[in-house]
Amino acid sequence: MENINFTPFPDLSTERLKLRQLDIRDKNEIFALRSDEKVLEFQEREKLKSIDEALNFISKIKKGISNNEWVFWAITQKGDNKLVGGICLWNISKESSRADIGFELFPNYQGMGIMQEALTAVIEYGFKNMKLNSIVAFTHMNNSKSIKLLKRNNFIKDESINNSHQEVVYILKG
């Protein structure tokens, strides 16, 4: 795996989507996304309680990107800069050329193929540009939509990684 450098930020584009850097102007959407009960249903994280917490999250993400610790894309539809979701590569291990993938989408944008399109672009970026050997996804055992998406993209359940929670682990090898 080569040295990772997310500067300049690696904007990605698909047929319908633009994956861009998260910005302070996304604070309202980040707050709404990360406090939405439906989005949080299968997440093991605290619900955001304020716009200030959303701003802190954005600041943390930007700092991690500038330190090349992770990369987080705001998912937007072409022609509309409004954030509809997010997707990231994080827990990047240079030693094993591996990264974890995470994603979330507002419920009213689910079922439209948006995450499929975003996931395809990020997987390609991870293997082609970052030279990853594998991408790992942790998802709740009852999150059937996420599991179906991962399987459709050739992720295979990894029984070798033990999780103490209700998560299952899927892995995609490059």
Rank of each mutant, 00 (worst) to 15 (best):
E37M: 10
W70H: 09
A32K: 13
T7F: 09
V71S: 08
F42A: 01
F9I: 14
H165I: 07
A121M: 08
S97E: 15
I58E: 05
Y170C: 09
T120H: 12
E46G: 08
N91R: 09
F72N: 14
G174N: 08
S144V: 14
K151R: 11
E104I: 03
E37Y: 12
N67P: 11
N68S: 08
P107T: 10
G111H: 01
F6M: 15
M115T: 00
I30M: 03
F72Q: 10
G174R: 01
F6P: 08
N133M: 03
R25C: 11
S160N: 07
K78T: 11
I61T: 08
L89Y: 00
E29D: 07
I101F: 01
L105A: 11
G86Y: 09
K49C: 06
N56S: 14
V71T: 06
L19I: 07
I4C: 15
V122D: 10
I123S: 11
F72A: 12
K157H: 10
P10M: 12
H140N: 12
F106T: 14
N56E: 10
K94Q: 15
I75H: 12
A54V: 01
N91W: 07
V39F: 00
A32I: 12
H140A: 00
F106H: 12
K131D: 15
Q110T: 04
Y109N: 11
L12S: 08
S97R: 07
A137F: 00
S134C: 04
R34G: 13
V39M: 10
M112E: 04
I92Q: 04
T76S: 13
G85W: 01
D11F: 15
V71M: 15
